[in-house]
Design a binder for these strands. Structure first.
Lengths: 190, 190
DNA sequence: TAGCAAAAAGGACAAATGTCCTCGAATTTA
DNA sequence: TAAATTCGAGGACATTTGTCCTTTTTGCTA
């Protein structure tokens, strides 16, 4: 739970006592490689902090292809946010790329925390703001770079993900084809 | 203020009395065509609801080109969120595409509201969540569609913006060049 | 450890998009 | 209102990226 406490502290001021007080609401869980934290069509009742491991979120487009929309990495959160927040069926699946340890909270427990304490209202808001800023960055940058620029950026900013994820998933994450990614890798290696 | 009240009510349960109670914190302001609501390098101390008009947010990339990252439309919010939330210099400019009427709140007043009332904590959190979901949609969709698909989507989902904004701004918003957009328009008109 | 299946690399060609340019129409400014 | 400037359309060509396919490599399992 230590890393999760540090994560929360990076978002809001939080004493160790306060953290202890609320920690019973959080559960630890392990997810084996390729198993799912959320699935398309099912309502997502949990959000999670990633203690160790890697997940990818994906949706399925009109051509029935899986499109990886996000890699969720250690010491960050993961959730099918839209589904979790609205308690509607998920448009995303979230799958473990490798064995992954999670610290989870249920939707109901989180609502309880919101009611119990303005501290949690504050945490909830700050996290939503934070997620938004990350997504804004991702969106504006990825849409205006070439395939090579995008891959170079990913190599620099998420080297661990590049090592662990499949070529297919990396390519769809960058919005390019396998073939293009293969060409770029070749070019870089020269 | 009526449209703003409706906007808030669509997010959280809110009585007319409550709205009246807090409305003194909000100011009305008009922004002439091409003038700025936020500027790169300056810390943004206000967020706004757009009563009437249209704005675009843009950043400047390494090639010194303006890249339009968002069109902010009537009955929605606008802000250089990252700057406003963190009170750090803005990486975005926000410029009026046409004469625009805004309902604004200052950072300090918003913090006061957060402290005064859990209602506002809730509004703040819900808005951040909402912005996040919009951005998520934008990001995942735009990165995996062709130039034509993106433009057709925009025509369908934001016809008013297509009519008002310049070709340059629309192209950079879609992550394509003017030339490509010109070709697509030609093709569609046949 | 041999054989199989899945993943990645890459060849050949087609299509999409970008670059650089010119031209004419629309809009602003003196 | 004339001149100047901006803006959008589009030609010609270069480059990038995609498509479809085969080959090679990797990793798993019997």
């Amino acid at each position: 739970m230590e890393s999760f406490k540090l994560f929360l502290k990076s978002i809001v001021p939080l004493s160790d006592q306060e953290f202890e007080k609320y920690s019973p609401y959080f559960k630890t869980r392990t997810l084996g490689r390729n198993s799912y934290f959320a699935e398309i069509g099912k309502t997502s009742h949990e959000a999670a902090f990633i203690k160790k491991g890697l997940l990818r979120t994906y949706y399925v487009n009109e051509k029935s292809e899986e499109v990886t929309s996000c890699f969720c990495t250690e010491n960050n959160l993961t959730a099918s946010y839209k589904s979790f927040i609205s308690q509607q069926p998920s448009e995303l699946s979230i799958q473990a790329v490798e064995d992954t340890q999670l610290i989870t909270i249920s939707y109901n427990d989180l609502q309880t925390l919101y009611q119990k304490s303005p501290l949690w209202q504050n945490i909830g808001r700050s996290i939503a703001e934070r997620q938004y800023m990350v997504m804004e960055q991702y969106a504006s940058v990825l849409c205006n770079e070439t395939a090579k620029e995008k891959y170079m950026r990913m190599l620099k900013e998420q080297p661990a993900v590049v090592n662990k994820a499949s070529v297919n998933d990396i390519a769809s994450y960058l919005g390019i084809t396998r073939r293009t990614l293969s060409r770029i890798r070749k070019e870089i290696s020269l």
